[in-house]
Amino acid sequence: MAEYRKVYGLGAEFDSAASLMSAAETVRDKKFTHWDVHTPFPVHGMDGAMGLGKSWLSAPVLIGGATGTLIAALLTFVPSWGIYPMIVNGKPFDWRVLPAFFPIFFELTILFAAFSTVFSLLIMNQLPKWYHPVFNWDQFKKATDDGFFMVIEARDPNFSESRTREFLESIGGKNVTLIHD
């Protein structure tokens, strides 16, 4: 049945992290745009080999942390200074009480920043995504074990089933397989 399904891309297996990385550098230099490598652990330096910059995930985390601080400020000051002033041991309840609120500020900053980290990670990685065409490739199970894979997608403008197959083999790819959607 597989031949009637849309082609997702071509996958190739590599021997080691080192060979995958040098292959990735070649693919990057050939100006491919829709491709990825799959490894059981993050390979140090692979971002550069793929021509990817630094992750910008820290930006939403900064916003999340700042939101947390702001919410903590409102949460403590609105009741204390506004709707529910409480005098305990004759101590102040207005702006002068700020140092006593620092622990709350701190904890909510961390809490909101941590939630932003995890949710940004999920959104930026488009997870959860329980179905993906690469899972149709039998060998792909090894990507979370000890396999090193590269997949070039069919929607890449440079993609051609025969030429890309030859190209992947020329840069050291083994078991080059057509992956269907």
Binding site: V37, H38, T39, F41, D47, L52, Y131, H132, F135
Partner: peptide, 8 residues
């Protein structure tokens, strides 16, 4: 969550 170990 459908983790694929992709470098991206």
């Amino acid at each position: 969550l459908g983790w694929r170990g992709s470098n991206r």
